[in-house]
């Protein structure tokens, strides 16, 4: 069985003021610092992300949002000279423990990137990629699971006749939903989204946002976005980051209507 256990009794201290009381936690970072070579990118971050909710990360460019995201699926491991201190828990288990299988961790924590990155294969093969890693061979089951994932990503109706076409021929918005379908196909529990709508036109963005809200029922989503309206529209909770630190974390409503800090307010209202 998987070495990751579900959230257990070793859950960490909840965030300020009983904000997440009664909620299971999907992701947790405690005293997390990250260095690229000599440069400090994250500074003593503590953050909890609840299960089956959408949590948005906002903040100025270069404040470390994407780097924080990549700590949760250990994608920072791929970067040479990258050093991490502190603790990261994914679904209640230390993600950086020596006996953790990184591929399995990444399978459970899906990720969607800023730039749509479909593989230069057919639409169907893209979605089946992760399934093949699990050793799935039966055409029937593959087709079935591909369809399920594409439906879940709201793409099925558009590509049902083009499953054998190259994925590179889809529009950017379709590519981004294809990538989400690809991630959903391996049945992750958490989705990390790194500015998924920043390269899309307004209509595609709208569809993507609808999709995110729909996904909320079954997945825990951590969303990095530059778009304030987007965060306000889809997120249940919002964290404001600046200079590698989480300055404020609260329900989205309160962050946008009544932020505690001046910096958050300035950023939200566009003064920063």
């Amino acid at each position: 069985m998987s070495r990751l256990r579900l959230a257990g009794a070793d859950g960490l201290q909840p965030m300020p003021g009983g904000l997440l009381d009664g909620l299971e936690l999907a992701l947790q970072a405690r005293a997390l610092s990250l260095h690229y070579a000599e440069r400090r990118v994250l500074d003593q971050i503590s953050l909890s992300v609840p299960r089956r909710r959408i949590t948005a990360l906002i903040g100025p460019s270069g404040c470390g949002k994407s780097s924080l995201l990549r700590c949760f699926n250990r994608l920072n491991d791929e970067i040479a000279d990258c050093r991490m201190d502190g603790e990261v828990q994914v679904l209640g288990v230390d993600a950086y423990a020596a006996d953790v299988s990184v591929p399995d961790l990444r399978r459970r924590v899906g990720m969607v990137f800023q730039k749509p990155n479909p593989f230069p294969q057919s639409v169907g093969e893209n979605v089946a990629f992760g399934l093949r890693l699990a050793g799935l061979r039966s055409r029937l089951e593959l087709d079935d699971r591909v369809e399920t994932a594409l439906r879940a990503a709201g793409l099925w109706d558009e590509v049902r006749d083009r499953l054998d076409d190259s994925a590179l021929r889809l529009s950017a918005g379709q590519q981004q939903r294809l990538v989400i379908a690809r991630a959903l196909a391996v049945e992750p529990e958490v989705l990390l989204m790194d500015e998924p709508a920043s390269m899309l036109d307004p209509i595609s963005t709208l569809r993507l946002e609808e999709l995110m809200v729909a996904l909320r029922e079954r997945y825990s989503v951590l969303l990095v976005t530059h778009n304030m309206q987007q965060a306000a529209r889809v997120a249940d909770y919002t964290a404001y980051m600046q200079d590698g630190r989480v300055l404020e974390f609260d329900t989205t409503d309160r962050i946008f209507t009544n932020p505690r800090l001046r910096g958050t307010e300035d950023y939200i209202t566009g003064k920063l």
Binding site: M1, P103, D104, A134, G135, T148, E210, A214, E217
Partner: peptide, 22 residues
């Protein structure tokens, strides 16, 4: 937009990953 219920329970795929992990 609605999310159709998965036709497979969550465990089989996770189980298969687990079986292949080694």
């Amino acid at each position: 937009m609605s999310v159709p219920a998965s036709t497979y329970p969550a465990t089989p795929l996770a189980l298969r990953f687990a079986q292949r992990a080694r």
